[in-house]
Structure formats: structure tokens, C-alpha cells
Design a protein around this nucleic acid. Structure first.
Lengths: 215, 215
DNA sequence: CAAGGAATTGACCAACCGGTCAGTCAGTGG
DNA sequence: CCACTGACTGACCGGTTGGTCAATTCCTTG
């Protein structure tokens, strides 16, 4: 029999860490405005005033949370092995691991996607530079590299391939709960199968091959 | 010289319509919690109490707005001509017109996407049934139909094609502001070119064709 | 014209918001 | 032992929130 807490952050972490964790959870679930400082304080197990001791105001706290989330997801997407295997294999691996990572860290992902939906053009640049920029550029580079080795058709725009890959994953994350209710869809609960099917589509296209479908 | 209104809904519409229009604009721009009933009242040019006369509470108003938006976007996607042309042409036309429609009605689109990001599994079903369901099923049917006529490879899952098509468009809408800042991307401001490039990718795949790329 | 229901309003409310503040307390260096 | 400090707290602030209500105006129907 011990202290009852419906939801709480680990008690052994520092106050600042607990506040950040609580704030990230609540912000990602409900968005900025729907979360009160009282709620964050309660979940973190500290007083509201304590939050203002560590963060100058609510917006600063939110910014810290977003920055944290960005850093995390940036780190997560950094290992992208090169050259050892074919472009198709590398793309497949990237797609699979990115999607899995998004699902594993759904909280962070949702926060960033929410941020994406938010305010205008100005705001997009920060995200572009701080979060996705590096890994996107690297992905494009990888594709372009495969293109010089004739592993994909010459007239294709590498950036378009990269965007398509990411679009596929992002949409799965967003629309899973909707897709689940379509009778035609059998992959809503199976990211592995989803990745496989969509990657096949992307690699080989949907039109019938002139001769044999196998390369 | 007349009454000054920084932003307003058309004065000739009924109060209910003006309220709905104002609410949709504000909700889609700022989200549920960030918009106050006072703000909606001011923009609609009515008193706050008047809103509560027409809608039982804030949530009911929001629901009405969402339902309106859903109905509108449902109507928008209903014309999908069949049989006259090849599957590739029909898919291309669908992609182009859907994307254009999303951009033209950015307000509504953003509202629905925001809704998608929101709460859990339960909520997804309503959206599935009320908004996207019909047109998704029809799109799948169209693809399946083309498949029986051997216009696309037999082993392909029509639902996967449909999801890919939609994912491509949704992601463009969401990430435009970010994509714009990538030096590799030349289609962020040109939905037409985006549709073209991505559709080519989807139709022919990215791998080199065994013989001639042209069908 | 009178009657009555719908539309509309300003005044008002309790609850809650983000944020402040004076002050307690544990630790620490001299 | 004392002085100082940073972490931390409960009580509190002005302002705003969603929502109520009695009163008034408007419009229709008899």
C-alpha cells in the first residue's frame, strides 16, 4: 500500500525533468491551450509555482518541450547506414525504422505533427531546420546516390521520392484510427505489412510491367 | 463611411450562418480551446448570448462546424467520373482535383486534419464513416475495377494504392511550409508539378524498367 | 391592433486561467 | 553558528472563460 497517483512521472527524477515529462505528455495529448499549468503541476507532483521557478512562463515551458522532442526525434533518425546494400533495401529499412520510431514515440510525434498544423509559414522554417532538415537532406542524398549508380530511373526527382516515403509514414501515423474502420484495409493494425505493401508500390509502381515484373 | 469591422462574415446571411462561418474560420485557424465565444460573437457580429440561443454550448457549436465541414468536403469529392478513360488518367485526375480542393478550402481541410490529430480511436470511426468513408470506398472500387481490366498489376492491394494517393496529398497540404525550405525541393509552391511528379512515381515505380519505361 | 413566440441583448456569475509573491526550508560554505 | 542561496510552497491577483437570465425587440399570425 503506497501513495496513490492516477498518473505520474517517475518520482526519482529531478523536478525539472518531471515537469518536462508531464508537460510533454499533456501537451501532446491535448495541445497547448487545453493544458493548464495546474494540470502539469499535479501530474509532475510539484506546485504550480515551482514550474514558474524553473520556466519563465507557459510558453517557455512549451518551447522547451518542443525543443526536447525535436532533439530526441533528430537523434533517433541519425543512423542511416549506407552503401552496404542496394538502394531498395536501404529505402525499405529507412521506411520501416522511421515508422516504427514514430509509433514507439507516439507522444513526441503527435506533438511535432500538431506543431506542424499550427501557425503559418514563418514557423515552418524552424521545424525544417531544427527537426527534419538533416535527415531529409541525408535521405535525398542517399537516393541521389543510388540514382548515380543507376539503381533508380534517371528522370526521377530524388526529393519527390523522399517526400513520398515520408508522406506514407506520416499518413499512417495520423490516419491509423480511421483506416481501421475501412473494410478494404487490412494493414491498419500492422505497420510491418503496411510498410511492405507501400514500399512495393513505390519501388515497382502500380502499372503492369512490360515484360517480367521481377528485375 | 460605414461601420468598421476588421474581419466579419457577410451581413446578409442569417445569424446562425454567420456564427457558423465565424466559428469555422476561428476554429480552423486556432483550434478549439484558443477560440473564445466572445471572439466568435464579435466576428459574427452578434452577442455572445445569441450564440447560446442557437447552440446549446461551445462543444455543440464546434460539432456543428465540424459536421458542416465534413458535409462540404464530402460533397466536394463526390464527382469521380468513371470508365471513360484509363485508370492512370482517372487516378491522376482524382489526385489533382483532390489536392486542389484541399488547397482551395484550406480552412475546412485544416479543421478536419486537426480533428484527426485529436483524441483517440473512438473518434476516428465517426470521421471514417461520415467524412472520408464514401469517397475512400469509391476510390478503392475504381482501382479494383481497373485491376480486373488488367490496368494494374494483379498482386497489388487496391486499398494500399488508395491510401498512398491520399497520403501524398495530405502530406503536401500539411508540410508545404516546411518543404518550402528544403533546397532539394522545387515543387513546394507548385501543387500541379507535385501531383505530376508523385503520380509518375506511383504509376511507374522508381526502379529502372526491365525493357522500355514507356508502356 | 393585440398576442405570443422567436431572436437578441447586456449584465452577471462561478470557475478557472496564467502568473506573482512573501515566506519556509534544506543545504552549504565560511 | 551564522549568512546566504536556490528549491519549493500556499495564498492570492487581475483577467477571462463558458454559460445563465431577465428583459427587450422583432416578426408573424389571428
Amino acid at each position: 500500500m503506497q501513495a496513490i497517483k492516477v498518473q505520474a512521472e517517475p518520482a526519482d527524477a529531478s523536478s525539472t525533468e518531471r515537469i518536462l515529462a508531464a508537460a510533454e505528455a499533456l501537451f501532446s495529448e491535448q495541445g497547448f491551450d487545453a493544458v493548464s499549468m495546474n494540470a502539469i503541476a499535479a501530474r509532475a507532483g510539484v506546485s504550480k509555482a515551482n514550474i514558474f521557478h524553473h520556466f519563465s512562463n507557459k510558453n517557455a515551458l512549451y518551447l522547451a518541450v518542443v525543443k526536447d522532442a525535436c532533439k530526441e526525434s533528430q537523434v533517433r533518425l541519425q543512423h542511416m547506414e549506407s552503401s552496404t546494400s542496394s538502394l531498395a533495401e536501404r529505402l525499405t529499412h529507412f521506411a520501416r525504422s522511421q515508422l516504427q520510431s514514430m509509433l514507439d514515440h507516439g507522444q513526441t510525434t503527435r506533438l511535432i505533427l500538431r506543431e506542424l498544423l499550427q501557425n503559418g509559414p514563418e514557423h515552418g522554417r524552424e521545424l525544417a531546420e531544427q527537426v527534419f532538415g538533416q535527415s531529409f537532406a541525408r535521405l535525398v542524398e542517399m537516393i541521389r546516390d543510388g540514382q548515380t549508380r543507376s539503381e533508380l530511373r534517371r528522370e526521377i526527382d530524388p526529393a519527390a521520392v523522399a517526400v513520398m516515403l515520408i508522406a506514407i509514414n506520416v499518413y499512417f501515423f495520423e490516419a491509423r484510427d480511421v483506416l481501421r474502420h475501412y473494410p478494404d484495409v487490412d494493414f491498419a493494425d500492422d505497420p510491418q505489412r503496411y510498410s511492405e505493401k507501400l514500399l512495393q508500390l513505390m519501388l515497382h509502381g502500380i502499372l503492369p510491367a512490360p515484360k517480367e515484373p521481377q528485375q
